[in-house]
Simulated assay, not measured.
Amino acid sequence: MRDLGIAMYTACVDFMIRAAALAGATYRDANAFLFFVLWPVVTVVLLGVVAWQAVVLRRLERRR
């Protein structure tokens, strides 16, 4: 199990290094973008989806 975790970590770091190189940035910049911009945006969008689903479910329950 430990080897799988190390392999996944290595693959993710390799992906980030290659993505940063394609964008003309450093690994540090790409990592900061991921954790300070992309992750919060995805979290807010997913919270919006959950709220929208709750509204839709309430409307469906009222129709019954």
Rank of each mutant, 00 (worst) to 15 (best):
A7T: 08
R2A: 14
T26I: 01
N31V: 14
L60W: 09
M1K: 13
Y9S: 13
V55P: 01
L34C: 04
V37I: 09
D14G: 11
P40M: 03
A20F: 00
T26E: 06
A23Y: 01
F35R: 08
R59F: 09
V13F: 07
V13G: 04
L46T: 12
R63Y: 04
A11P: 01
L60T: 08
M16P: 00
I6Y: 05
L60Q: 13
A25S: 11
R2I: 09
L57K: 12
V45A: 06
F15A: 10
F35Q: 10
A30N: 00
A51T: 03
R63Q: 05
G48C: 01
I6N: 02
T43Y: 14
G5N: 11
D3V: 03
T10L: 15
P40C: 02
G48Y: 02
R18S: 05
L22M: 09
D29K: 09
R28C: 08
V37C: 07
L38N: 11
A7R: 11
L34R: 06
L57D: 12
D29F: 02
V49L: 08
V41G: 02
V44T: 07
T10N: 15
D3Y: 14
M16A: 04
F15L: 11
D14Y: 09
A21N: 10
E61G: 04
R58A: 13
T26F: 05
E61W: 13
R63G: 01
L22H: 11
A11L: 08
R64K: 12
P40T: 01
V42M: 06
V55L: 03
W52N: 11
R2S: 13
P40F: 02
Y27E: 03
N31W: 12
R28Q: 14
F35A: 10
W39T: 15
V42G: 05
G5M: 08
I17C: 10
C12N: 15
D14I: 03
F36L: 11
F15R: 12
V56P: 00
A19N: 02
A32Q: 07
W39C: 14
D29A: 07
E61F: 05
V13R: 07
